[in-house]
Design a protein around this nucleic acid. Structure first.
Length: 828
DNA sequence: AGCACGCCGACT
DNA sequence: GTCGGCGTGCTC
């Protein structure tokens, strides 16, 4: 039978599809669309293509055309995987922007953007989903063959499957199996986020029966009076609250762990493990309503007003001023208008409480996206965002890549956090900046929220590029701890200092320990001694790369450079003059830990700084030991102030505040003070008295007096004013400079970008989008840039030339593997 | 990314 | 004389 449409079809020209491949290659490639599939291809659909000799990849169509490539014969698309485009036009535009702005290949963006399961390639490994029982009779022959093989061999690559079936196009079959949840896409072994679990105690429900309970009482009274105490205490406690923890129970009943253990063994007590927020107590949060107070109401109105003129608004709200409630109201309004919301968080792991609160409010309209989710979960979220089922997505930086269809608002919470910046694999994007670009694609609004805004956002707000809303009212009269400032010179004069600790601090620690409470000591210096000086000739050991003094580390017995990691052996005599009098100036966390253990030999002291937390687990272990009361005193740097909730930490000692007062990153020390005060303040709320002891050589320093008044907002603003207007030169755009590429080409690109960026910056002195990326820049403008060479190669010559041409002053002698190239930049 | 090709040192 | 390391270029 002759069909007219057939002849129309033949008239049609061959289509050619431009395809992005998930590979670090500079170009996109053109493929020929098979004649009979011409109606099925669309921009944004995934396709299977052959690339290179025999490899298959999943690519994405980014454009279609009718013109055949001139210089080569295009290969055919092997398959089209999607019935509807999986990547929206906005996403493609976004990918394009990312690759241009952050100087990486389109394929690298695709790699970051798509969950692994959506980009099967011939080397992708698949495995059986062991948690899922399916009916084998429902499988077709091919599927059956694959499953059969997977039962013998746990993992198969896609090309092995292809051999098995004796056919090349296996992706659709695998896609079906994946959709049916029968197979998994094997993932690289990356540690998954472990939620914090707590055991809660409850009485076995059989004892709800009064008879049974009475019987229990009688038995226990005779044989185990302590256990009876525990049961009575539990009954008492569960009247007051829903969840009873081990510590609370022990406290109330005055019994030991052994007693509780016996009761659990007898199944009189039931233990339930529940996931709890790593932050504050969820009971407190649950009580707070979403009603806005008058200040929040005002801020809310201001934000909406600002949105009428500005696309980006910065909400500068001090801690516990209730920013979350404002977010909720905004999100609510946007959802009502039928649009989607992206809520970005710096570190999902530390902010479950926000998720809990928003979940409780928005229910199943809310999705959570996160690079540590497994692939099935990620694909699920992807699809639900694409279909519009999820109205709100809460996520870490990678959620900017989700397929929103009508985004109305992006909230960037804790906008100053530098975990929004992706460092290691390209694309090295900053999620906050990328989100702002993303918003322009959807004509959406962006709300940046922070108690301590980043310098660049604050600057943009001051320049009226962004709107600015301030929220200075502290919500709900947060209980603040007593703050006592100790003048070190005075104490020294009165001979009341024991080593580095004032009598007041020691007494506070001791009495806390007596009450089985805990203390945190804060010293913002790693190592043992930060500075060595020869008493005879004044020589100081310095880093050969960085020109900073080396810190003595007792744990390694070496001198360390804290900037670049350079190490050298410690010397017994001065290398300059041979004198044996090397004076040790200052003290770091190692020394504090050492001396404190001499003064309090029975206390269990743990140190937490970069050196003791090299692995992520170590960090977790230290914190959980503190929480489980296996530690009495924690000594550490900034990181002890990471804002975690320890109910029994009642004493915070700042051993020497002076390094904080001078610290170049104002935000860090402000946060440290604030966090530390909060930790002990929280303890105060539970009927215990919180105390912060600040030891300083300069008790009248402006920052100290503001800390006492709890006036962080003022403190921040003054610092900002100085930064922005008087003290420091204009800002330059800084790019990712700690180059770790093994690939010379990438280093070349990086160098090129660096050159252009610097030229441009010195020309118009614009404040950069992501700032500051290397923390070795004093006073926030570039003086020195360090490039790390990880691999040496012949192409290094090219890089060398580029650097020579583009950098003002450049020392070329050290270009070899493992070395750091230091570039001094003179902006004037 | 993977793979082929080509160039120089160290080996049966 | 060849084996194999590594650097470079190419893949529609």
């Amino acid at each position: 039978m002759l069909d007219l449409s057939d002849s129309v079809h033949i008239e049609k020209k061959t289509l050619f599809a431009e395809v992005v491949l998930p590979l670090p290659i500079a170009k996109n490639y053109t493929y020929r669309v098979p004649f009979d599939r011409a109606a099925d291809v669309n921009v944004g659909k995934r396709v299977v293509v052959q690339f290179g000799k025999s490899k298959l990849y999943t690519g994405v169509i980014i454009s279609l055309g009718e013109k055949a490539p001139e210089k080569y014969e295009a290969k055919y698309l092997m398959d089209i995987l999607d019935d509807e485009p999986l990547i929206t036009p906005q996403q493609l535009a976004f990918w394009d922007w990312i690759s241009g702005y952050y100087l990486c290949n389109p394929g690298e963006v695709m790699n970051a953007a798509l969950p692994a399961a959506l980009k099967l390639a011939s080397e992708t490994r698949i495995s059986l989903n062991t948690e899922y029982n399916f009916d084998k009779s429902e499988l077709n022959d091919k599927e059956f063959l694959i499953i059969d093989a997977l039962e013998i061999q746990a993992e198969l690559t896609v090309s092995e499957v292809s051999k098995l079936l004796g056919q090349k196009t296996v992706m659709p079959v695998l896609k079906m199996l994946f959709n049916k949840n029968i197979i998994h896409i094997a993932e690289e072994v990356n540690e998954r986020y472990k939620p914090r679990k707590r055991s809660f105690y409850g009485l076995n429900p059989v004892y709800r029966n009064q008879e049974q309970l009475k019987e229990l009482f009688e038995i226990l009274e005779k044989r185990a009076p302590k256990q009876l105490d525990a049961v009575l205490a539990l009954l008492q406690l569960s009247k007051q609250k829903q969840q009873v923890t081990k510590a609370e129970l022990e406290e109330a009943a005055q019994v030991s762990t052994a007693v509780l253990k016996a009761l659990v063994e007898k199944e009189i007590f039931l233990v339930e493990e529940r996931i709890v927020s790593r932050f504050s107590n969820s009971e407190e949060d649950a009580e707070s309503t979403f009603e806005l107070n008058e200040y929040q109401e005002k801020a809310f109105k201001q934000i909406n007003q600002q949105f009428e003129q500005k696309d980006v608004v910065l909400l500068h709200g001090i801690t516990s001023s209730g920013k979350t409630q404002i977010y909720v109201r905004l999100i609510e309004a946007v959802i009502e208008s039928g649009k989607q919301v992206l809520f970005l968080l710096p570190e999902i792991a530390l902010t479950i409480h926000i998720i809990e609160r928003l979940r409780q409010y928005f229910g199943n309209k809310i999705g959570v996206y996160h690079s540590r989710f497994n692939d099935n979960e990620r694909v699920e979220v992807w699809n639900k965002v694409l279909s519009g089922e999820y109205k709100v997505v809460l996520g870490a930086r990678s959620s900017v890549f989700l397929p929103f269809n009508n985004l109305g608002l992006i909230v960037v919470d804790e906008e100053h956090e530098n975990s929004y910046k992706q460092f290691d694999p390209a694309p090295r994007y900053h999620a906050r900046d990328a989100a702002i670009y993303l918003s322009t694609l959807y004509k959406a609004k962006v709300l940046l929220g922070s108690a301590t805004p980043s310098l660049e956002s604050y600057y943009n707000a001051q320049q009226h590029k962004y709107g600015l809303v301030e929220l200075n009212f502290r919500f709900g009269e947060a209980v603040l701890p007593e703050i006592q400032v100790i003048s070190i010179p005075e104490e020294t004069k009165n001979k009341t200092m024991q080593s580095h600790f004032s009598t007041v601090l020691m007494q506070d620690i001791e009495s806390a320990l007596e009450k089985k409470e805990q203390a945190i000591l804060f010293q913002n210096r790693r190592g043992y001694v930060p500075l060595l000086i020869c008493k005879t000739c004044g020589f100081t050991p310095k880093c050969i790369n960085c020109d900073v003094s080396l810190t003595l580390h007792k744990s390694t017995g070496k001198l360390h450079c804290h900037y670049c990691g350079y190490k050298e052996d410690v010397y017994a005599v001065c290398p300059a003059c041979g004198s044996v009098h090397l004076e040790q100036k200052g003290y770091g966390t190692e020394k504090i830990e050492d001396e404190l253990s001499l003064l309090l030999p029975s206390a269990r002291i743990v140190r937490m700084d970069l050196d003791t937390t090299r692995t992520k687990m170590a960090f977790q272990n230290i914190l959980s030991d503190l929480e489980d009361k296996k530690t009495d005193i924690l000594v550490g740097t900034q990181m002890v102030a990471k804002g975690l909730d320890f109910s029994d930490v009642t004493v915070i000692g700042i051993v020497n505040a002076d390094s904080l007062l001078k610290f170049p990153d104002f935000r860090a020390n402000e946060r440290s003070f604030q966090m530390l005060a909060q930790v002990s303040g929280r303890a105060g709320r539970r009927g215990k008295k919180g105390k912060v002891v600040i030891q300083t050589y300069d008790p009248h320093h402006r920052v100290i007096s503001q800390v006492i008044r709890n006036d962080y907002a003022e403190m921040y603003q003054m610092e900002m004013a100085e930064r922005l207007q008087f003290k420091y030169p204009p800002f330059y755009r800084i790019i990712q400079l700690d180059v770790k590429h093994k690939n010379a080409e990438a280093l070349f690109h990086q160098a090129e970008y660096l050159g252009n960026a610097l030229k441009k910056q010195f020309g118009d002195r614009v404040l950069g989008p992501e700032f500051p990326l290397i923390n070795r820049i004093r006073n926030y403008y570039i003086k020195t840039i360090i490039l790390k060479i990880e691999k040496e190669g012949t192409s290094m010559v090219r890089v060398k030339n580029i650097l020579k041409e583009t950098i003002v002053q450049f020392q070329t002698e050290k270009i070899s593997k493992g070395n750091l190239i230091r570039i001094d930049v003179d902006p004037y």
